[in-house]
């Protein structure tokens, strides 16, 4: 049984990973703009960050440099910190307003 990582590297060209990463990023960005639930919007941001990670890893393989792996760890750590703060902010919003619809959080004048 051949090693899966070797098969993936030998048979899936770099372009496919990058196309997948672009698709994920665009889905995330579009979802951010279209979806109206705060948690979903937040998940879309995470999707965008994961698209970034995917492209880092793919490029890392192509360039034969380990830097990309390290960068993607940086991204994960920052995303975790952001999630901690973000979910806390979403919780306080929910506590004060009892809604997670983004259109209802608009007491400030536009």
């Amino acid at each position: 049984m051949p090693d899966l990582s070797q098969v993936l590297a030998a048979q899936v060209p770099l372009g496919w990973y990058l196309i997948l990463s672009v698709i994920l990023f665009v889905i995330g960005a579009a979802g951010f703009l279209i979806r109206r639930n705060i948690i979903t919007v937040f998940m879309c941001i995470e999707l965008m960050l994961n698209a970034v990670n995917l492209s880092f890893i793919a490029f890392s393989h192509k360039l034969k440099m380990v830097d990309g792996h390290i960068y993607s760890f940086f991204v994960m750590v920052v995303a975790a910190a952001e999630a901690a703060v973000g979910l806390a902010i979403i919780l306080t919003v929910f506590k004060n307003r009892e809604t997670l619809e983004i259109d209802e959080v608009s007491s400030l004048k536009l």
Binding site: F32, I45, A51, V78
Partner: peptide
């Protein structure tokens, strides 16, 4: 008002960071 400011700042700020980071990648 504070909640709302934090929420908007957080969502749009992280959105912008993701764009920046994708450019870096």
């Amino acid at each position: 008002r504070n909640n709302e400011a934090a929420l908007k700042y957080f969502l749009l700020g992280s959105f912008a960071s993701a764009f920046f980071l994708y450019g870096v990648a």
